[in-house]
Amino acid sequence: MTDQPPSPEHEFAEEQASLWRITLGPLIWALHFIACYAAAAVICAKLDASPPAIEAMRWSIGAGTLAALAGIGWAGRRSWTQWRDGNDDVFDDDDGSNEDRTQFLGHAALLLSIISFLGVIYTALPAFFETSCL
């Protein structure tokens, strides 16, 4: 905490960045979802479901899933810090102060990261079990 209150411009810029950050988890989930479904559609419908292509796709989805989970994990860790650090009333961020607002955005980002993490796993599960396009 500084003695000098931050300038309104700086404060706005920081909150804007925080607002963008809460979309990071769902954004990674959406990109992962589109990539998985597009790859499956192209390989099954346009590449005649050739077994080597399916095998390559399954491994790629596996690698992409690990990358997506790492990204969401990082976003979640960051939002945990934003929510918890220096926060002595973690479930009472509704005083309307700038600090509380930032902490609330951190909390929301953490919850979104959790649901995105699960979403990515569920999106990838079919590639783990299915070995053909049938």
């Binding site: 079990f129 299915e130 053909s132 049938l134």
Partner: peptide
């Protein structure tokens, strides 16, 4: 979900 997905290949067998 895992249970359902694991029986899908059988249901779609050639």
């Amino acid at each position: 979900l895992s249970y359902g997905l694991s029986i899908m290949p059988d249901q779609r067998a050639v």
